[in-house]
């Protein structure tokens, strides 16, 4: 049951159990929620680290070879595909990093734990 509930819903459900007199279930729900949150945060931190590393590698490739990259990327015409494709790839990798990084910091949209 708890797999499909958001953090807010879990709290409300726990309150409902407590009000109905089932304090054991209410407490279990909250403890389980807290444990799951801790595990999820650690998993997010690992993912953030991996995506962050990939993002840093992409930046390093560009900056280590900046003369070659600048030359190729500024030739115009069909070479325009290079900067466009690059920003798409970088956005995917760095966007994933940013997503997990914010989750690790506990910054999630309202209602998600």
């Amino acid at each position: 049951m708890d797999m499909k509930l958001s953090g807010f819903e879990k709290n409300v459900a726990a309150c409902a159990f407590a009000e109905a007199g089932d304090f054991k279930t209410a407490k279990e729900m909250l403890v389980a929620g807290a444990k799951k949150e801790g595990v999820a945060r650690r998993a997010d931190a690992v993912k953030a680290g991996l995506w962050g590393l990939a993002s840093a590698c992409l930046l390093a490739i560009v900056f280590v070879n900046e003369d070659l990259v600048t030359d190729l990327y500024t030739r115009g015409k069909w070479f325009a595909a290079l900067p466009i494709a690059s920003v798409f790839i970088f956005t995917f990798v760095h966007g994933s990093f940013a997503n997990y990084f914010l989750s690790t910091l506990g910054l999630k949209p309202k209602g998600k734990k």
């Binding site: 560009v62 115009g76 900067p83 690059s86 920003v87």
Partner: peptide, 14 residues
Amino acid sequence: QWGMLGLIDIRLTL
């Protein structure tokens, strides 16, 4: 359009 003119400095963009 800007890319076709070769004016994007990818380092700044990234």
